[in-house]
Design a protein around this nucleic acid. Structure first.
Lengths: 210, 210
DNA sequence: AAATGTGAAGTTGTTCACAGCT
DNA sequence: AGCTGTGAACAACTTCACATTT
């Protein structure tokens, strides 16, 4: 028997917890104070048993016969995910996609702040009216030495991605959100989440022609 | 009760096939004609047994003792995924993200063409120099009646997403790539792939603080 | 009565390990 | 010998179904 160490929560569960959190926020603005697993699961697009099991990975928050307290559950999930405090992030690669991500409201809304952005050719980007100054790649190591950032968004072209990832890892980045089509090779302790827009469309395309 | 004659390929396998396809393309430009499951798997970041099993869902393309013919395998996967022909797509929602997606080279490169873009306020966007004219939402039904498009990218704000999805489904769209934070309710036969940038960061954030 | 929490059953996906080609 | 293709073992995830609590 292991003692109450860090609960080992499956990746998919963590992902769904984010969805539940958003549903709870919506439900709360409707003035609803208590919600059943059935109702919340429906809003999140999952089965109720799954929602209940997901929650029990890190505690018991419900009242039998009644359901879950919306505010409490929201707080607990938010705390677990670490979104109750503002998380600093850096962005590398300020092309089409990178620019969009820089001005994307969704990140700020959900508790993330893009502290700084880096690009190979920062001068070229001066013209665009961006919300933040763009730094050259050479400034990256110094910046990371001075700021406690653990996560980076990579939005550079495929061929440049591995080199960028190496630099990031060398300078203490522990999590990478990779928008490039490259498959990044990183040490085991570094987490990479891939978002590949072309692959998502390709995937859709396959299933649509069922 | 089974009914399907076509090979039923798991979603995750289809996703990985897209990755293999990209690796094959890279390998081909290096002039390599034959590749082992071991080598290709390494490039794709998976185990070799998994790659082999993924491939056998739709055929046998390898030569024992030798490996796979790069060109042939590329052709077979490309054919299966339906990326050998140009796929038309429409985009709904031309905000920050939508604008970036419109100019994103990755789609064109991988065989997708954004035929048209729609927004609630197309006039407001006239100023931005966009590669395509933006249509009003009211033109959507007519457009879909005249063009054989089966896939749509949704990049509207969360609260607007369900209504947009309804319109799309009513007008024959069978696959939606959903960038909004909303959980879309659609008929069973319609496929939705969700890409939620804030959730990806949140997920990363959780695992980084292990 | 209503709804949670959870073992057990069921399902799906991954890895092993080796028989069988080339 | 080298490498694929695959049944069998394994692992992870989902759903069921019901005892338990309010």
């Amino acid at each position: 028997m292991s003692k109450e160490a860090r609960p080992e929560i499956p990746r998919k569960t963590v992902y769904r917890l984010s969805i539940y959190l958003r549903c709870l926020q919506r439900v709360k603005t409707n003035g609803i104070r208590t919600v059943s697993s059935e109702a919340l699961a429906k809003a999140a697009g999952v089965k109720s048993a799954q929602l209940r099991k997901d929650l029990t990975y890190f505690g018991q928050f419900g009242t039998r016969g009644l359901g879950y307290d919306v505010e409490l559950l929201e707080k607990m999930i938010s705390q677990l995910l670490g979104t109750s405090s503002l998380q600093p992030v850096i962005l590398v690669g300020v092309g089409n996609l990178g620019t969009a991500l820089l001005s994307y409201q969704g990140f700020q809304q959900e508790g993330f702040e893009i502290l700084a952005a880096f690009d190979l050719e920062p001068e070229r980007l001066k013209s665009k009216s961006l919300p933040r100054p763009i730094h050259g790649m050479s400034e990256l190591p110094n910046f990371l030495r001075e700021h406690p950032v653990r996560m980076a968004i990579v939005a550079v072209p495929g061929p440049a991605a591995q080199a960028v990832a190496n630099t990031l890892v060398e300078n203490g980045i522990a999590g990478i959100l990779n928008f490039s089509p490259a498959v990044l090779q990183v040490p085991d302790e570094v987490i990479v989440n891939n978002v590949n827009l072309a692959i998502e469309l390709e995937n859709l395309s396959y299933f649509v022609r069922g």
